[in-house]
């Protein structure tokens, strides 16, 4: 898949504010609010690595498709496909505040 192929679908995601495509070697593509955001890329990479180490007995591996980091105004959504980590920052349109 070319870089354009990787990002074309990301551009069309509803309410997206920016995205990152990361490989083991670093950021392959970035746009919007996440443009050249190496810091967020590193944090998301670490988080998804940690999350993918969780094993649930008896469940198919891996146990999840997407990791969501939910904040008050926006959500980071992360998934892994073909040795690449895809991160999308989307607006959080849900009205109620989250009292964590």
């Amino acid at each position: 898949m070319t870089t354009a192929g990787l990002t074309a679908g990301l551009e069309r995601i509803p309410d997206q504010l920016g995205y990152l495509v990361i490989s083991e070697d670093g950021v392959l593509a970035s746009a919007g609010e996440l443009e050249n955001d190496e810091h967020t890329a590193a944090v998301m990479m670490q988080m998804v690595r940690t999350a993918s180490r969780f094993k649930l007995p008896g469940s198919p591996e891996p146990p999840f498709k997407r990791m969501s980091v939910t904040l008050e105004d926006f959500v980071y959504m992360v998934t892994v496909s073909g040795q690449k980590v895809f991160v999308v920052k989307r607006q959080n349109n849900q009205q109620e505040p989250i009292n964590a």
């Binding site: 679908g9 990301l10 069309r12 995601i13 509803p14 083991e24 998804v48 690595r49 993918s52 180490r53 591996e61 891996p62 999840f64 498709k65 997407r66 969501s68 939910t70 959500v75 959504m77 998934t79 892994v80 496909s81 073909g82 040795q83 690449k84 980590v85 895809f86 999308v88 989307r90 959080n92 849900q94 009205q95 109620e96 989250i98």
Partner: peptide, 22 residues
Amino acid sequence: SLALPSLTSQPHQVLASDPVPY
């Protein structure tokens, strides 16, 4: 460092689907 697991074959679809309900 541990190889990245493949979580999906359709990343765009997974990322475009509805957020987790409040």
